[in-house]
């Protein structure tokens, strides 16, 4: 089963929930850090056997002798990475998403595709957890292709927990592709509620089953709970606003290990998710 941990707002505790769920699973589990712009799941785990692979995307290279300047490639490119001005087109590789469409539509076969590095993918092991995570190169504004490269390594079977990037745009959509269940982490503040609503709209548009975890419960107001109730959204867990959790986090520690009394709550959370996700799958 593939479980994605997402949120509208950043800093709500996606990684905290992801890492602690993986640790509470107490079975072979793959933890996939899809937040390639700021990966941090590895900071909480003592990883062994780190292997780093370089990833890139294929960008167009024009053979000026074969090109007749028809401009088909530039008209096709959704991302404006090619400019046709009569002669051979100009290429802006930094705008290219690597779809390969330009090479396919070129009637002259004048476009070759050359790899352009966008980042790295690290794989490592920590106890029963297999960790996979991407890290986008500085200056590259192209998260989805690297997230897709990370996701190529996702297990076909078994328990997989994906730590998604924040927000509701392309990188999150890439992370949520083909998952079985989404956990939306929020906080009981006006900001948390505002961004939770956006995230709920997103997962509903994607037609994915989901539930909510309220982190730092007790620190704000009851509006998030009221919203979930009125929308019929299941609240899977309320993680209290416990100073000891913040302290453990700041030291890079896993809550279920530093504060074992929370282990049961995370195990229960995982069981609820598996039950909800499986129930949907059976329907």
């Amino acid at each position: 089963m593939k479980i994605a941990i997402a949120s509208g707002k950043g800093g709500t505790g996606k990684t905290t929930i992801s890492v602690n769920l993986a640790c509470a699973a107490n079975e072979d589990v793959q933890l996939v850090d899809c937040d390639v712009e700021e990966p941090n799941a590895h900071l909480f785990l003592e990883a062994r056997g780190v292997a780093t692979e370089v990833e890139g995307i294929l960008t167009p290279q024009i053979d000026e002798e074969l090109c007749d300047g028809c401009g088909e490639c530039a008209r096709f490119c959704e991302f404006n990475a090619l400019a046709a001005l009569g002669g051979a087109p100009l290429v802006f590789p930094e705008l290219c998403h690597g779809c390969g469409g330009c090479a396919r539509v070129c009637p002259q076969g004048a476009i070759a595709e050359v790899e352009r590095r966008i980042g790295t993918v690290d794989t490592s092991v920590s106890g029963l957890i297999r960790l996979v995570g991407g890290c986008l190169d500085v200056g590259v504004a192209m998260a989805p292709p690297l997230i897709n490269a990370v996701k190529k390594r996702v297990w076909k079977q078994g328990l997989v927990i994906l730590d998604a990037p924040p927000g509701t745009t392309c990188p999150v959509i890439a992370a949520l592709g083909d998952v079985d269940y989404v956990v939306l982490v929020t906080e009981p503040t006006p900001f948390g509620l505002n961004d939770l609503k956006l995230a709920v709209d997103m997962v509903r548009a994607l037609n994915l089953p989901f539930g909510v975890v309220i982190n730092r419960a007790g620190s704000g107001n009851a509006d998030v709970m009221d919203y979930c109730r009125s929308e019929g959204i299941v609240v899977l867990m309320e993680l209290p606003d416990d100073r000891r959790i913040a302290q453990a986090y700041s030291r890079g520690e896993v809550i279920v290990e530093s504060l074992p009394e929370y282990k049961g709550a995370f195990r229960l959370l995982l069981d609820k998710i598996i039950k909800s996700g499986t129930a949907v799958g059976e329907n």
Binding site: A74, N80, A84, F92
Partner: peptide, 15 residues
């Protein structure tokens, strides 16, 4: 309203 590459497209337009 282009997602990206507005300058490139506008340059093509005027060219």
């Amino acid at each position: 309203n282009a997602m990206q590459g507005a300058g490139i497209q506008s340059a093509q337009l005027v060219a």
